[in-house]
Nucleic acid binder design. Structure first.
Length: 711
RNA sequence: GGGGUGGUAGUUAAGUCGGUUAUAACGCCGGCCUGUCACGUCGGAGGUCGCGGGUUCGAGUCCCGUCCGCCCCGCCA
């Protein structure tokens, strides 16, 4: 990267060219004092009418709370907004003119949420507290949709209901935070069937404005109607989070956490905590580093996961552990990846894979039943890694649709078609006639381009065939291939008239990678999974390979180095370690990996052999994991566990399309928090205390530019 | 590190081949309105076209650089 010095300041002020703050705030800085006076609320003169006293209160005049212009007559000098950028709305109350809290509806408290009232409540005197969602002013009637996290309730103001409250309601604007007191009345013919509270409304006798609001940069009321840019949403995250759709997500997320805690506790698991600041572990995901002031020159790492600590809990005899915990990984972000994320972390002693599955299946069943009202049949289906790869080309197959991969290598041997004959592996997908209509010649050309792309696996090409109504085999390469091969392919793929057959011939790896990508592309292209279909295809993928081979031929742990081989394959560990299968498993939902785990090694001889295969010397293993190996000298129980990605589960359960919609304060793709403008350079004094000196930053000019934030 | 895509009023977007005063909707401000519920209606204000540089008589538009958002590869369970 060549932009880091400017980049450093850019981190502090992402939009270096423009002003960081919206015009309204700039206006506030220069004219705030004057404007504040104009909007100074009147002190509260008398206690509010409490609902119980409402009957006799109207004559006394309502408590109108602090109003915008005192008496609302505009007698106070009100500076005319002259500059283009001046906003109408000033900041909230000046200090010193805050109304006495003793007179506030705050003291009365709310009687109901804004989503609670129904026809049954007609006649009740109620107090509601919330935000102005929308205001509709008809002169003699002002309607306000009052919003809190539970819903919307229509409040109506009128001169005949309460003149002063009606007059004050004239000043209400979007997102003012207010309280109202009044009587629930039936709406009769005017009921709004689109609102759960639509059968009733509140005739407001009291209005209290807790705080005013500038015109918000994000329209809370329009919620899903306007797709506000991600940068604005993140800068004003607290407004974004006011949107009912996001509130729903976080209410769901909270339920998920609650049901998890209850279900795990019911199953005998203890909720135990592990440190976030831990020993740096090389390998795996990149760690965030935390310098230690008390130990100059040394660093903690932020935990990638509680992995080792939960295993030590097993050594400690806690038997069953779970934790809803944050994990930190300094890797590039994605739509479904954040640098800090939350895991449901689980470990149990005397574990077998089935015992882990049983526990997690109960959790899944409870979550879907209690959060979504959906029954998930258990046990969940299982598929070995080898079968998943063979049938779907993926270790996290989306099984909401078919299009399974069909092995054709044997069928095309000796077919005469060189492209197929010479390939190490040939596989195909059958697109049934019912879905094949969009696969026109030009569309097939596009799919050919698709499979050639590097990110999709980089196949050399896509071979296709169409089965004619008479069963004929129609393909560009048909004449290059024997009739017998046509028949063999059709038979193997179970092709019917009208079907379109797609083939990839290449290395085993390429064929599976490409067909996996192609399969998912066809899912979207042919709309094989309707977006509104709430289908939940869970799957355990089991028996992962213990090791993966790197390009240089060395083996690395596919899961992590403490993963146990299958007990029936300990011999292979010596004879052919590359073939050893692990007691490792993933939980997959609709093509998303939502969890993964393994049975751990508890035998020191097996662990030693695995380290040996990984090329880890005894000394190196001792240095990295000495404390764990030492612990395993003292009677470790056989154990294993799993971690579920809470964020991804929340994303799928809420139907959110991004992790950012289920994480309250997420980071951007560059890992920045646009609301707090983080990260920022550190004070030199702070660095000095840590004995840290910055190296020249990439792109820095000689002599170095200031890295101080310019804001 | 790489590929793609976007940045125009408070917001969401349009802006043709480089050419008059940069449009629209919503929002905002003022007036009217007693049954709306995305209220209606009349009037008004509102722009550093992300930023910097260049080409040109002339740049929102073309070129170079840069910042930021998003999607993806690499990376990462």
């Amino acid at each position: 990267m060549s932009e880091t010095c400017t980049n450093r300041s850019g981190m502090a002020r992402p939009d270096v060219g423009g002003s960081r703050w919206p015009p309204s705030t700039r206006a506030r800085c220069s004219r705030g004092r004057l404007r504040s006076r104009a909007f100074a609320p009147a002190p509260c003169a008398r206690p509010p009418d409490l609902p119980a006293r409402r009957g006799g209160s109207r004559r006394d005049g309502p408590h109108v709370g602090p109003t915008l212009d005192g008496a609302g007559t505009g007698r106070r000098p009100r500076p005319r907004p002259t500059a283009a950028r001046t906003r109408r709305r000033g900041p909230a109350a000046d200090a010193g003119t805050v109304p006495s809290i003793m007179t506030s509806l705050l003291v009365t408290g709310r009687t109901h949420s804004c989503g609670a009232l129904r026809a049954d409540h007609v006649g009740n005197d109620v107090v509601l507290l919330g935000w102005v969602h929308r205001r509709r002013d008809h002169g003699g009637r002002i309607f306000v949709d009052l919003r809190d996290r539970e819903g919307l309730t229509q409040v109506v103001f009128g001169p005949d209901i309460d003149a002063a409250a009606h007059e004050a309601a004239d000043k209400l604007r979007s997102e003012f935070c207010i309280g109202i007191a009044g009587k629930v009345i039936a709406r009769g013919d005017n009921a709004n069937p689109n609102l759960p509270t639509g059968a009733i409304e509140i005739e407001a006798s009291t209005l209290e404005i807790f705080s005013q609001a500038d015109t918000p940069p994000i329209s809370v009321a329009d919620d899903d109607r306007i797709d506000t840019g991600e940068n604005l949403r993140l800068r004003y995250r607290y407004l974004d989070l006011r949107r009912p759709s996001l509130q729903k997500n976080f209410i769901t997320r909270s339920k998920i956490a609650f049901v998890t805690r209850r279900t795990m506790t019911e199953q005998g698991f203890l909720e135990l905590e592990t440190p976030y600041m831990v020993k740096y572990t090389p390998g795996g995901a990149r760690n965030f580093l935390v310098p230690s002031r008390l130990n100059p020159g040394t660093f903690y790492a932020l935990a990638e996961s509680p992995q080792i600590f939960k295993q030590l809990f097993m050594v400690a005899g806690f038997d069953r552990y779970f934790q809803i915990t944050r994990c930190f990984r300094d890797e590039d972000l994605r739509n479904d990846r954040q640098p800090e994320f939350t895991q449901i972390d689980v470990e149990l002693s005397f574990a077998t894979p089935e015992r882990v599955f049983e526990v997690m299946e109960r959790l899944v069943a409870n979550l879907w039943r209690e959060v979504l009202g959906v029954e998930i049949p258990t046990p969940l289906p299982r598929l070995s890694w080898a079968e998943a790869m063979g049938r779907y080309g993926s270790d996290k197959p989306d099984r909401r649709f078919g299009l399974e991969l069909v092995e054709l290598t044997a069928q095309v041997a000796g077919s005469g078609f060189r492209v197929f004959e010479q390939a190490a592996c040939v596989k195909g997908i059958t697109v049934p006639a019912a879905h094949a209509a969009p696969l026109t010649r030009s569309q097939l050309d596009k799919l050919t381009d698709f499979v050639k792309k590097r990110e999709n696996g980089g196949a050399k090409g896509l071979a296709w065939a169409r089965i004619g109504d008479d069963g004929s085999f129609v393909a560009p390469f048909a004449k290059s291939m024997s009739e017998a091969a046509h028949k063999a392919i059709v038979a193997q793929m179970g092709a019917q008239p009208g079907d379109v057959l797609l083939f990839i011939a290449d290395t085993w790896h390429t064929v599976h990678q490409v067909l996996c990508a192609l399969r998912l592309e066809l899912r979207d292209l042919l709309q094989l999974v309707p977006a509104d279909a709430r289908r939940w295809e869970f799957l355990w993928v089991t028996d992962f390979p213990l090791f993966e081979q790197r390009d240089d031929g060395t083996l690395v742990a596919a899961h992590h180095p403490f993963t146990s081989p299958r007990t029936d394959q300990l011999e292979l560990l010596h004879s052919d370690p590359g073939k050893v299968l692990a007691q490792a498993y993933d939980l997959v939902l609709n093509g998303n990996e939502i969890g993964g785990g393994s049975i751990r090694i508890h035998r020191s001889d097996v662990q030693a052999r695995v380290f040996e295969i990984l090329g880890l010397s005894q000394a190196a293993a001792q240095q990295k994991f000495g404390f764990l190996l030492e612990a395993f000298k003292y009677g470790p129980p056989p154990h294993g566990g799993i971690a579920l990605g809470l964020d991804r589960i929340a994303m799928l359960m809420t139907g959110a399309t991004s992790l950012r919609d289920v994480i309250a304060y997420p980071k951007t793709q560059k890992g920045q928090d646009l609301m707090t403008l983080c990260p920022t350079p550190a004070d030199d004094a702070q660095l000095e205390e840590l004995f840290i000196r910055l190296r020249p930053l990439p792109g820095a000019k000689e002599g170095g530019e200031s890295t101080e934030p310019s804001a």
